[in-house]
Computed example of a mutant assay.
Amino acid sequence: MSNKQAMVLALLALVSGVVEAQQKSIDLGRQEYVTHCASCHGDDGRGVGAKAAGLSVKPANLRVLSRNNGGSFPLIRVLETIDGRLEVLAHGPRDMPVWGTRFTHELAPAAGNDPLRTEGAVRERIIGLADYLYTLQD
């Protein structure tokens, strides 16, 4: 096998690994969305979940995040909103769960209460959720 062929095979393996990791993240995000978000934002992300009618502020239509941001998915804003660093005025006081904190409490025991391992697991869930939201864009 020539060096060029070996490089092409290595590149294909790398791309395949990246695609597989991306799909795993999206699958994790879909699971997180169904578990934690769909009741308010709806199964399809349009803001009409089962609990939406009982809320004083209508949940956001998560399918138009890119459109409302000039065609670019606002990844950092999405991550900061999910983990609680970016306060969403429509949510009012932080009675709405701050997912970073909630995920930390859920995941810490499995991570041996190690702060670095816990943070890594929390970030994985939040990034997966953001990856899934990206796939919902109209």
Rank of each mutant, 00 (worst) to 15 (best):
L65K: 05
I127T: 15
E119I: 01
S66K: 05
Y33K: 03
G92E: 02
G47N: 06
D114A: 05
L107M: 08
D44V: 09
A108M: 13
A110L: 08
G42T: 02
D44P: 02
V98F: 01
T81V: 09
P97G: 07
T35I: 01
R94A: 13
G47K: 04
Q23R: 11
T135N: 07
E87K: 14
G71A: 08
G128I: 02
L136E: 04
R63D: 01
G112W: 07
A6M: 07
S39C: 00
P109F: 10
D95A: 12
P93G: 12
G92F: 04
C40F: 08
S72A: 11
N3G: 15
I76K: 15
R125D: 09
T35G: 03
T35P: 00
R94K: 11
R46Y: 02
G54M: 07
V64M: 12
D131F: 09
Y132D: 04
A6T: 13
V122M: 12
L55P: 01
Y132E: 02
A130M: 09
R30D: 04
H105G: 10
A111S: 14
Y132G: 09
Y132C: 05
I76E: 14
G128E: 05
S25E: 11
N61I: 00
R125H: 15
K58C: 00
Y132M: 02
Q137H: 05
K4Y: 00
S39G: 04
R94P: 00
L75I: 04
M1L: 12
H36I: 00
K58E: 10
C37S: 06
Y134G: 15
L86S: 12
L79N: 11
T104S: 13
G54L: 07
L11C: 06
A110K: 09
N3P: 03
R30I: 00
M7N: 08
G84A: 06
H105A: 15
L9S: 13
A52M: 07
V57R: 11
F73E: 08
T35S: 14
P115K: 12
T81D: 06
S2V: 07
D114I: 02
G70E: 02
L14W: 15
G42E: 03
L133V: 14
L133S: 11
I82E: 10
E119N: 14
G29E: 01
G100L: 09
E87P: 02
G54E: 04
V64Y: 11
G42M: 03
S56Y: 07
S66H: 02
V8F: 14
S16G: 13
E119W: 12
I126D: 14
V34R: 13
L129Y: 10
G84H: 12
N3I: 01
R46N: 07
Y33H: 07
G47A: 03
A121N: 08
C40H: 06
S16M: 09
E87F: 06
L107A: 05
H41K: 04
A60R: 03
A10W: 06
D27E: 13
R63I: 03
A6D: 11
V64E: 15
L62K: 03
R30T: 01
G120A: 08
A38R: 03
L11I: 03
W99L: 11
L136M: 15
L62P: 02
A60Q: 03
T81K: 07
G84D: 11
S16W: 08
K58Y: 08
G100I: 06
E32Y: 00
G17I: 02
R46P: 00
Y132N: 05
H36D: 11
G120D: 08
A121T: 04
R94Q: 10
